[in-house]
Design a protein around this nucleic acid. Sequence first.
DNA 1: TCTGGGGTCCTAGGACCC
DNA 2: TCTGGGGTCCTAGGACCC
Length: 425
Amino acid sequence: MAPHFALVDVNNFYVSCERVFNPRLEGVPVVVLSNNDGCAVARSNEAKALGIPMGAPWFQMRELARRHRVRVLSSNYELYGDMSGRVVAILRAFSPDLEVYSIDESFLDVAPVLALHGGGSSLGQAIRHRIRQWVGLPVCVGLAPTKTLAKLANHLAKRHPGFGGVCDWAALPAPEQAAWMSGVGVGEIWGVGRRLEPKLQALGLHTVRDLCRADADFLQARFGVVLARVASELRGMPCLDLDTLAEPRQQIIVSRSFGHPVAALAPLQEALAMHAAHAAEKLRADGSVAAAVQVSLHAHPFRTGERHEGAVTLPQPTDDTRLLIRAVRAAAARLYREGCTYRKAGVLLFGLSARERPQGELFDFGEAGRERSARLMAVMDGINRAYGPDTLRSAASGLERPWRMRSGRRSPRYTTCWEELPVVS
DNA sequence: TCTGGGGTCCTAGGACCC
DNA sequence: TCTGGGGTCCTAGGACCC
């Protein structure tokens, strides 16, 4: 059976999560900031209408926001992650063939259940209704025979109220499809970014329709196979499959800007120890081990761009937090330069492989040591899952932690923390 | 003064092999 | 003067996504 894709995407996801628990945010401009309160990463429609762009540095927007009484929030990833999980659980009941594409978007292959729901449009409405009723979030649904067209349909459903939040591309008559394609700029397409857009425009390819009708061999020769696939998908020929099983990651990055600049080695090492511990948690969640770790220290990213980086190959691949912390502390001591003021530090784990088949046994702890390590890590992960992140952590990550990122306007963790449950009075 | 964080895939070029 | 053909693996850089 040919696939029929549905792309379900939550509108202004972070802002919508905040509105579920704080109805006073309805109808007014709301912005959610990135980590360290740096950039605007989510905007309500009212905030978009004020001209606040995605990714805008917040200090540049502050005056505008004050004038228009924009409600500003720090990001609350614990809340958004939990809400995302609830949406995915609902979607799985509609179709088990599901790919979680990002925190607020999933693709489903709905071909087998389309008839059951009386067609794409009513299936889309059923999804919208259930997510609204059970979780409180507004979503839009785009349906089409390829993922790229489903993205396009979703884009139309979001922007044109006439669709009622659901656009079933295949149900539109051909002349209407052509008209919609002519109305969307080439830069809006999934797979065409900031670099490609001007190059395509210079060749006279301005709209989705132009790209759709461009010669496939020409696109392939000029821009590579990625863009050629995009064009094929727009013509209705599926090139991208549903990725239903989440493959373990190939690399794991944890990095954060500091709330305040850091000049001394000790706090740098604390921050890196915490990042290493968080990276190791993700590593174990994937069932992987890392062969190498890279540490990076960033000085003045927007002025000199100065950055000190160094990689360490571990004696053997590991997922043990203690060994990773030891490695990043040593690397930091080597990279650190006296007199330098640092803004950000990061840990990258790479050379990842599955834990079941460790590579190289020559200088191992031996079987007993490996088992002790695995048990200890499992206990630590269990405690932190049950009682919250960082409940049990290495002393190497510091006690005061003055370098921690700014997050002064974070809403309560309504759904994941007993002390912060919403109270109805 | 102040600018996030975490990923993926593809391509070209070099090293190396027979 | 003139120097094959086919492959793999790795890395860096560039593009994209949210």
